[in-house]
Design a protein around this nucleic acid. Structure first.
Lengths: 197, 197
DNA sequence: CGCGTTAATTATCTTTTGTTAACGCCGCTC
DNA sequence: GAGCGGCGTTAACAAAAGATAATTAACGCG
């Protein structure tokens, strides 16, 4: 990969970063390609990986005691992916992260960046905005569960990010919405006959 | 209110704050008491209020186009309360915040603190940890919607914070869990006959 | 080509939830 | 103390979702 690409990425992330700091994190950054189905972070791992998705799709899921699998999160191009348990809470990941498509990442060890940029205002700001952005997304998702019915949640999903329909198997979208695949199939049928709104 | 109380609060929030900065924010801080039912932040307001709840309970709710009211959030003693729309996203609040009990707050204008502590590492760190904490809570709440049934969510609620049962009307707890009051009543009945787990 | 695998749909039945309305209880006011 | 309103419960019915299983279609592979 070209260093200019990494440079552009970090200049966006850390606006105002000092050149020498930029070099340090650039050299710690690697490009990585995940094949479809390949696991990125395994449940139980304490992974310091912080990835920026250039292309592709990562799914985070959890398997309960009955063996049922639930999709907790989807992340796609231009988004950051990391084990929140590990990065934010310093504990082993409760979820497995794997690629649904061939996925290209810029990957860096979070602890390394943290050390090298410790007490640098630029890093503090970037970190804050990164977490803030995730918080905004999380709060909106909570609202969809509190305020909307499953059908309305599905309608909103296909409105907000329609390409997911082609890229993610329905069964994963179903559990992401908190419903079963069978139920999602029925909702799709209902919507066909009544495409209102 | 005693200044020592404010001092303790901010020393906890901004570990390592400089004395002169501490004084500035202390003087900008006021104690405020809300009577039961009193509105703290109204929907549509762009409120810079940041409150630390010393005692009491605040509920944030939303009224949809059909006039149905949904509880989005509850905050209680030792927690921070603010309009996330306003503070974090710089937009008018989509929710109304009001006191369910007589509530005592330490209140400060967030923009003021922001100005006075701008570019101070201590403030950046505190702000990060504040948002991080909220993110952790949000992610856990999302998981309850994805991974648990309404009954399991209710069981978890009364396990994690049993005093809410006495302090908050059931109808508000119901919408907080994403279900109707009638349904919550049935869940309670089911649990009585089957207190397992 | 047939075989096994997987995903999506469909069917059937059960369980749960939503909706609406009624009822009793309690606290408040006049 | 009579009347009133809000709340939790219950009932009755409709709608939706869960559980399970069968069916179909698409696909890769030997």
């Amino acid at each position: 990969m070209l260093d200019s690409e990494k440079t552009a990425f970090y200049l966006g992330l850390f606006k105002g970063i000092a050149p020498e700091d930029l070099l340090k994190v650039i050299h710690a950054t690697q490009q990585r390609v995940l094949e479809p189905g390949e696991i990125y972070i395994r449940e139980g791992e304490n992974s310091p990986r912080l990835g920026y998705i250039k292309e592709g799709l990562i799914r985070s899921y959890h398997v309960n005691e009955k063996g049922m699998e639930s999709t907790v999160l989807l992340r796609w191009e231009e988004q950051i992916v990391a084990s929140y348990d590990s990065i934010l809470m310093q504990r082993p990941s409760r979820f497995t992260y794997h690629a649904l498509e061939k996925t290209t990442l810029l990957e860096v060890n979070y602890h390394l960046v943290e050390q090298q940029l410790e007490n640098k205002p630029v890093f503090e700001k970037a970190r804050y905005h990164f977490v803030l952005d995730m918080l905004a997304q999380s709060l909106e998702r909570i609202e969809t569960f509190v305020l909307l019915t499953p059908e309305e949640r599905y309608r909103q999903l296909i409105k907000d990010k329609p390409d997911l329909l082609q890229r993610v198997p329905d069964k994963h979208l179903a559990t992401l919405l908190g419903i079963t695949p069978v139920s999602l199939s029925r909702i799709r049928k209902r919507i066909q006959s009544k495409p209102s709104r």
